[in-house]
């Protein structure tokens, strides 16, 4: 009976989707060609923001307020998980097996390289594909490797939590600085520099550094909360 209702509901939703999508031409890229935001981004972004990467320009400047929200969602998830797992950490389980020699050595060798790659990606967010979120995830993946390779590894949670909060505050303060500079919240008030060089695009690199550090610290904290064993 239940599955019958589910099938009927699915059919109704599917029919609705099919009906309303039938109005639209299949495969037409009408968002980019419409005389709306899409075309504006593609044509004007490099001049207006100084960023060579249009995606970054949209994410950090045009729709920076959304990005602030998304960073906050991750922050909430990190706090929430830390809170829920607070008790679990005290339970005992069977001890993990130490990793093989190859994995341990490889992990020592790769860990710094992965961190450098992550930092490179978020530093160059306004020039090359990628950005704060991606760079932060790569940094965290380095820590994940370290956790897999070295079973008794511990991070200093306080440092990571402090980085999280400081980077989050830095994002908001960078936004507020736009207000102080006589513009509006999250305005790109700094000089745009030479197009397509590292020191360009105003506050975009600053915000992406903050996001990169924040995302890296948060995801590492999440991994640590899930993998670390009780004392």
């Amino acid at each position: 009976m239940r599955s019958l209702i589910a099938v009927i509901l699915l059919a109704v939703i599917g029919l609705g989707l099919a009906l309303c999508l039938s109005d639209m031409p299949f495969g037409a890229n009408h968002i980019a060609t419409a005389e709306k935001a899409g075309r504006h981004y593609l044509e004007k972004a490099p001049q207006e923001t100084g960023s060579a990467n249009v995606v970054t320009a949209v994410v950090v400047t045009y729709r920076g307020f959304d990005t602030l929200g998304e960073v906050t969602v991750l922050f909430i998830a990190a706090i929430g998980l830390g809170m829920v797992l607070y008790r679990r950490k005290k339970q005992e389980g069977k001890p993990p097996q130490p990793a093989s020699f190859v994995l341990q050595t490889g992990c020592c060798f790769l860990f710094p390289l992965i961190l450098i790659l992550g930092v490179y990606i978020f530093l160059h967010g306004h020039l090359t594909p990628g950005g704060g979120f991606q760079g932060g995830v790569i940094v965290a993946s380095g820590f994940l490797l370290a956790y897999i390779g070295c079973a008794d590894m511990k991070i200093r949670h306080r440092w990571f939590e402090a980085t999280e909060s400081l980077a989050g505050s830095a994002f908001v303060i960078a936004g507020m600085a736009g207000l102080a500079a006589g513009g509006s919240f999250l305005m790109n008030f700094m000089p745009k520099g030479n197009f397509n060089t590292l020191f360009s695009a105003g506050i975009i690199p600053i915000i992406y550094i903050a996001i990169g550090l924040k995302v890296g610290a948060e995801l590492t904290g999440l991994i640590a909360n899930l993998l670390e064993r009780a004392e």
Partner: peptide, 9 residues
């Protein structure tokens, strides 16, 4: 927000 006119920002 950010000084961009609505449909864009």
């Amino acid at each position: 927000v950010g000084g961009w006119f609505p449909p864009v920002g």
